[in-house]
């Protein structure tokens, strides 16, 4: 087991390196850097001024080298511009002498956001907390609801409960967040519902039922249908299994068949699905935060991406990829524990 986790961690590290490099490469294309120069400097800069700006801010030099600097395995760039000592690792007013040689993520330095004008690590911390709250509530609503709907539907295949719950799940999977969000806000304003708000901006200061219900519901609904359908499929399969028939013919009551015999077997597949749902929830987060004006991680990502804020984007992608990989790992390990048939020797 230890070896297995070690192997997975190695693989995760490799994946992270590959992905961050791709992000790095895409954000450091010449054209992107020129756009960055124009948004940071001024839109009217001439081509030479743009090149000048790029050079002065350390965006020249080889891509690999700069990626190494960002990682913290290559010394940060230093440069003298108009008598002022500048460098990757230099804070305002520092000189070469008192700045560290390396300052990358390995040193815990995630860089500086050019658009939000703050340390990336601070931004990520605050924004991620906000999104964490959102995710927490989404999970609290989504997972139990999905499992209950799935189990109820799959318990008796073909029954009326099954049919109506299945249609409900299909409808929710067919309604992406930007559709359901729009419809919810529309409904709230059309029916004059006062106890729900179409914006979650105030939720950043304090969560209330009114300002958080719609964003949570919007996200939870879209994800729910999928998990519910998986659970249903898994449940129906288990309910037709021979061992359920054995249990039935042993005289076990229907309730006990479902609770004691079917449930554990039926939840193995959905567990993996729920875990793999996380990465995909990110898209939802971005949409919902945009739609409901909630300035969390998704909003930050949009800000970073639309302004080509390189270091912010890189950190965002690290977080996103980390979430994906960790959940995958958990899902694999959890699968092993849920399913006694697979045990590590």
């Amino acid at each position: 087991m230890g070896l297995f986790i070690l192997k997975r961690l190695g693989l995760m590290l490799l994946t992270m390196l590959c992905l961050t490099f791709i992000v790095f490469w895409l954000t450091n294309l010449d054209a992107k850097l020129e756009t960055l120069a124009k948004t940071q400097g001024s839109a009217r800069m001439t081509d030479t001024e743009v090149q000048q700006w790029i050079a002065n801010n350390g965006y020249d030099g080889s891509m690999i080298g700069r990626y190494g600097q960002w990682l913290g395995i290559v010394p940060g760039w230093t440069k003298e511009v108009r008598g002022e000592e500048r460098g990757r690792c230099l804070e305002q007013g520092m000189t070469f002498a008192d700045a560290p040689t390396y300052c990358g993520i390995l040193q815990g330095d995630f860089g500086y956001s050019t658009v939000l004008r703050d340390d990336v690590s601070t931004i990520i911390k605050t924004r991620l907390t906000l999104t964490g709250k959102l995710m927490f509530w989404v999970m609290i609503v989504m997972v139990p609801m999905a499992l209950i709907v799935g189990v109820l539907a799959g318990m008796r295949e073909g029954s009326r409960t099954d049919r109506s719950l299945s249609v409900f799940s299909i409808v929710t999977t067919a309604t992406p967040e930007y559709v359901s969000g729009v419809l919810f806000i529309f409904a709230v304003s059309a029916f004059g519902i006062k106890w729900l708000k179409g914006s979650a901006a105030s939720a950043m200061d304090g969560l209330t039922f009114a300002n958080f219900t719609l964003p949570v519901l919007t996200m939870a609904l879209y994800g729910m249908g999928y998990i519910a359908r998986m659970t249903r499929a898994s449940m129906t399969e288990v309910m037709t299994a021979q061992y359920i028939r054995t249990a039935r013919l042993k005289g076990v009551s229907f309730g006990n068949i479902v609770m004691k015999h079917a449930l554990r077997n039926a939840l193995i597949a959905p567990f993996t699905v729920i875990m793999l749902q996380f990465p995909w929830l990110l898209t939802g987060v971005v949409i919902v935060e945009t739609l409901f004006n909630y300035k969390g991680f998704g909003w930050t990502l949009v800000q970073g991406a639309s302004n080509n804020d390189i270091e912010l984007l890189l950190s965002c992608s690290i977080v996103a990829v980390l979430v994906v990989l960790v959940t995958q790992l958990i899902s694999d390990i959890g699968y092993v524990f849920l399913n006694p048939r697979i045990r590590v020797s």
Partner: peptide, 20 residues
């Protein structure tokens, strides 16, 4: 798996731009 672990939305933001 690499592509799958890449957040779709980030990929879109990075890839679907006039510069690219």
């Amino acid at each position: 798996n690499l592509v799958l672990s890449f957040p779709v939305i980030l990929l879109f933001f990075l890839l679907v731009t006039p510069e690219i």
